[in-house]
């Protein structure tokens, strides 16, 4: 039953996440709300970091991780198959009608609407990520607005963004450096 549930949840993710990679993220946060025993917001973040530092598509890494945490090796296989099967079926259908699909007015119009929507979903997921990593939400309950952001973390994040736009190095370098800095500075 659990395996079927895993399969079904990731099947939906595979079917509706358009644009790959980060597009699966909103679905994972939705899953964390529905099945808090499967995965939580902070392990989604840890997994994002692991995905950026290991080979393979982010979506597949995420489904494997969630599936493994929830149902072991069989769980990871079920979740990943669920994620991948809609793609495979759709692509195999489209491959036969490739040019007609590309030029179809309806397909183009639908994707014209879907792209900014996916972008909106990813932006909302980014806010969750920021809340997890840079904010101390307990300050809000105390009415302490200044204490809401953790200054050291915010400054480090800004430095990282500046470095990333200047240096063309692989994300894994930033992840590794951040892990080392994290060991010495308490974020």
């Amino acid at each position: 039953m659990l395996y079927l549930q895993l399969f079904w949840e990731f099947f939906k993710t595979g079917l509706f996440s358009v644009g790959g990679g980060l597009a699966t993220l909103p679905f994972l946060y939705d899953m964390a709300k529905k099945h808090p025993d499967w995965i939580d917001a902070s392990s989604i973040m840890d997994m994002l970091a692991v995905s950026e530092s290991t080979p393979g598509p982010i979506g597949v890494n995420m489904s494997t991780y969630t599936g493994f945490k929830t149902g072991g090796v069989l769980g990871s296989l079920m979740a990943t198959m669920g994620l991948v099967i809609p793609s495979v079926i759709i692509v195999l259908i489209i491959a036969g009608i490739l040019t007609r699909f590309k030029e179809s007015k309806y397909v183009q119009a639908a994707f014209y609407g879907m792209r900014p929507a996916t972008m909106g979903l990813i932006a909302a997921a980014t806010i969750v990520v920021i809340k997890e990593a840079l904010m101390d939400t307990s300050a809000l309950a105390k009415g302490d607005l200044l204490g809401l952001f953790e200054p050291v973390s915010v400054i480090y994040c800004i430095i990282l963004i500046m470095l990333m736009s200047k240096l063309k190095v692989h994300p894994i370098v930033f992840v590794a450096v951040s892990a080392v800095i994290g060991c010495f500075v308490k974020f």
């Binding site: 644009g19 990679g21 980060l22 902070s42 973040m45 840890d46 994002l48 970091a49 950026e52 972008m119 990813i122 932006a123 997921a125 980014t126 990520v129 920021i130 997890e132 990593a133 840079l134 973390s153 480090y156 994040c157 990282l160 963004i161 990333m164 736009s165 994300p171 930033f174 992840v175 450096v177 951040s178 892990a179 080392v180 800095i181 994290g182 060991c183 500075v185 308490k186 974020f187």
Partner: peptide, 22 residues
């Protein structure tokens, strides 16, 4: 503690990805 640092890096990576996708 290492993952505390990594999570901030994920924030920055997300920001970059969103800016590029936009």
């Amino acid at each position: 503690r290492a993952f505390g640092g990594i999570r901030i890096c994920v924030c920055a990576l997300m920001f970059m990805a969103v800016a590029k996708l936009w």
